[in-house]
Design a protein around this nucleic acid. Structure first.
Length: 423
DNA sequence: TCTGGGGTCCTAGGACCC
DNA sequence: TCTGGGGTCCTAGGACCC
């Protein structure tokens, strides 16, 4: 049976989440800032209309912010994750199979349903339900491949006449839309590829679809070949209801202010290691490889630059924060250089094993810590309970390097004290 | 003054082996 | 004159996504 995919994508997701609890900001331009309040990572439709670009550093648009009364918010991931969950649960009630693709997007597998229901009508129902139950606006694109469903969704957002639902089941409609879609708007084609394609005379999606898949593979890669096939209605990217287990876990942050002292860098790295350990246990994995990296600001070319990373292997795969901390401090000691102003550090865990699967050598003297599981799950439980936080002394108390979040909205949905009050 | 964070996949090239 | 060839594994780097 030929597959049918629907892509449901929330409109201006982070901005919509912030506006959900602030009806007073209904027609106000709103922007969401990256960690450290550095760049713009999301915009409401009003902010987009003012020409505020994605990823631009905030300091470059201060004049516009003042002139147009743009409201700023620091990223509030606890809030966005909670709203996202509500959207996804709603989708799971409406469709037989759902693949959560990102915080604000999901693919639905509608294969086999096309004979029983009107796909456009179904898309409209999804929109209405999410709007009523969660209060978030979404667009729906429907097509026989994921790449075309992305394209359909793009069109639903862009052309008001579509009423925010586009069904690209017919080849004729696919070709018509592809002719209108610039090559850089295709899923999987970024800045580099689109430049190369343009120079070959391939300007829109239809141009690309009509290029032979074989020659694309020779000149580019199998990835782009797949895109060409998908544009021609041949489904190459499978539906994945169960998310694959992670292959690496990264925890890194820019600092609120430069770090010059080893003590502080140690605190920061410990903090990131602890975070990474929590994520690792949530995945039910143990890691054998740990990488630590630190670097100065590449934007300050007049100051001395230093950037280094170092990986180390644990004697046995582990998910015990104490093991991870010990190794990370050894690695940090080796890459630390005095005399630089560091702006960022991070930790990467990789080489994962399922808990209990790793085969240790017959004469391996290194026994795993016997109380590890109990201690770690107790720690995780306390820290998730909302009653308080337990942490390792090395993480530090003062944290004067912590990131800036000057414009943070309240945790409306995840913290009792921040619950919205109706008088 | 001020420039995010967290992921994936693919490929080329080197090391090493037989 | 003329100096193998093929396979595997690993890593770094490039490209993409949200």
């Amino acid at each position: 049976m030929s597959p049918v995919f629907a892509l449901v994508d929330c409109n201006n997701f982070y901005a919509s989440c912030e506006k959900l609890f602030r009806p007073d900001l209904k027609n106000t331009p709103v922007i969401i800032l990256s960690n450290n309040d550095g760049c713009v990572v999301a915009r409401s439709k009003e902010a987009k209309a003012l020409g505020i670009k994605m990823g631009i550093p905030v300091f470059k648009i201060r004049p516009q912010i003042r002139r147009y009364g743009i409201r700023m918010f620091s990223s509030n991931y606890a809030l966005y994750a909670d709203i996202s969950h509500r959207v996804m649960v709603t989708l799971e009630e409406m469709a037989p199979r759902v693949e959560i693709y990102s915080i604000d997007e999901a693919f639905l597998d509608l294969t086999g349903m096309q004979s029983a229901i009107d796909l456009v009508e179904f898309g409209g129902r999804v929109r209405e339900t999410i709007n009523q139950w969660v209060g978030i606006a979404v667009c729906v694109g429907i097509a026989p491949t994921k790449t075309l469903a992305k394209l359909a969704n793009h069109a639903a957002k862009r052309y008001p006449a579509t009423k925010k639902v586009v069904d690209l089941s017919s080849r004729k409609r696919q070709r018509k839309l592809m002719a209108l879609t610039p090559v850089e708007d295709i899923w999987g084609i970024g800045g580099r590829l689109s430049k190369r394609l343009q120079s070959m005379g391939i300007h829109n999606a239809l141009d690309l679809a009509d290029t032979s898949a074989k020659s694309i593979r020779q000149q580019f890669s199998v990835v782009l070949e797949r895109t060409v096939r998908e544009l021609n209605g041949e489904s190459c990217i499978e539906f994945a209801q169960v998310p694959p287990t992670k292959k690496q876990i990264v925890c890194s942050r820019s600092f609120g202010s430069e770090i010059t002292a080893y003590q502080q860098m140690g605190e920061a790295v410990c903090e990131y290691v602890t975070r990474a350990g929590e994520k690792l246990r949530k995945e039910h994995q143990q890691a054998r490889l740990l990488t630590v990296f630190i670097h100065t600001s590449p934007h300050k070319q007049n100051k001395p630059q230093y950037s280094r990373s170092l990986s180390g292997e644990l004697p046995l795969p582990s998910d015990d924060t104490r093991d991870l901390l010990e190794l990370s401090m050894k690695l940090l000691k080796r890459i630390w250089r005095e005399g630089y102003g560091y702006v960022k550090a991070g930790v990467i865990l990789s080489d994962f094993y399922d808990v209990g699967v790793f085969q240790s050598g017959l004469f391996d003297e290194l026994a795993m810590r016997s109380n590890s599981h109990l201690l770690m799950s107790t720690l995780d439980n306390i820290n998730h309970s909302g009653l308080g936080r337990v942490f390792f002394a090395r993480q530090g108390m003062r944290r004067d390097w912590a990131m800036r979040r000057e414009y943070l909205s309240p945790a409306y949905t995840t913290h009792w004290d921040d619950l919205i009050k109706v008088r």
